Amino acid sequence: MSTALQPSSQPKLASHVRLGFDRARKQYMLQVPEAATVLNLTGATTLHLCDGRRTVAEIVEKLRDRYDHVADDDVANFLARLVAKRWVELDGD
């Protein structure tokens, strides 16, 4: 597993992390042991695409198919923050 985020990196949620939807609050949640983080729709969509097979570059392209303004740096920074927290792992560099 690599620690540097590259366009060829293949991100996936760490085994101890769950992405879910809280029906009562109508919000996506990233759940880790003893904590939960509320996600906006773009963040949740990004993490749904992090399956360990798609590259960061492919994820950006998929997001561009869905949203008007997607910056490579915004996606990379979001994922890098989650890698730093060890909530996302990288394969394929």
Rank of each mutant, 00 (worst) to 15 (best):
A35W: 09
T46H: 03
A57L: 12
V32I: 13
E34I: 05
T42L: 13
T37F: 06
V60F: 03
Y67H: 08
L30Y: 03
V32C: 10
D51T: 11
R64T: 00
L30G: 04
D65V: 00
H48F: 13
G52R: 12
G43Q: 08
L49T: 08
R53S: 15
V60I: 15
D51F: 09
E34S: 13
M29S: 08
N40W: 09
P33A: 06
D65M: 08
H48W: 11
V56E: 02
T45R: 05
R66M: 15
G52F: 12
M29A: 08
V32G: 03
D65L: 13
G43P: 01
V32N: 06
V60E: 03
Y67V: 08
L39D: 02
A57F: 00
T46Y: 01
D68L: 14
L47F: 03
Q31C: 06
A57H: 08
L30R: 05
D51W: 09
G52Y: 12
E58L: 03
L39P: 07
V38W: 06
E34W: 06
R54G: 00
E61A: 04
K62D: 12
L47R: 01
V32R: 03
T42N: 08
D51Q: 10
L47H: 04
R53C: 13
A35N: 11
T46R: 05
A35M: 07
D68F: 13
P33L: 06
L41M: 11
R54Q: 10
E34K: 13
T55E: 09
A36T: 12
A44W: 02
M29Q: 09
T45M: 04
R66D: 13
I59D: 01
L39T: 08
N40I: 12
N40K: 06
L63C: 11
A57Q: 13
K62C: 08
Y67L: 06
R53E: 15
V38G: 03
R54V: 00
V56G: 02
K62Y: 09
T45W: 03
T46K: 01
K62H: 11
V38H: 04
G52H: 06
A36I: 10
A35T: 10
L49M: 06
T42S: 06
A35Y: 01
C50W: 05
A57C: 00
T45L: 13
I59N: 04
A36L: 13
D68Q: 14
R53K: 15
G52M: 13
I59L: 06
Y67Q: 10
E61R: 10
R64N: 01
T37P: 04
A35L: 14
I59K: 03
L30W: 01
T45C: 10
N40Q: 11
T46M: 01
Y67K: 04
D68R: 14
D51C: 10
L30M: 04
Q31T: 04
V38Y: 02
D68S: 14
I59Q: 00
L39Q: 07
Q31A: 05
R54I: 00
N40S: 09
V38F: 02
D65P: 02
K62E: 12
L41P: 01
T45E: 11
R66K: 14
D68G: 14
H48N: 14
L39A: 11
V60Y: 06
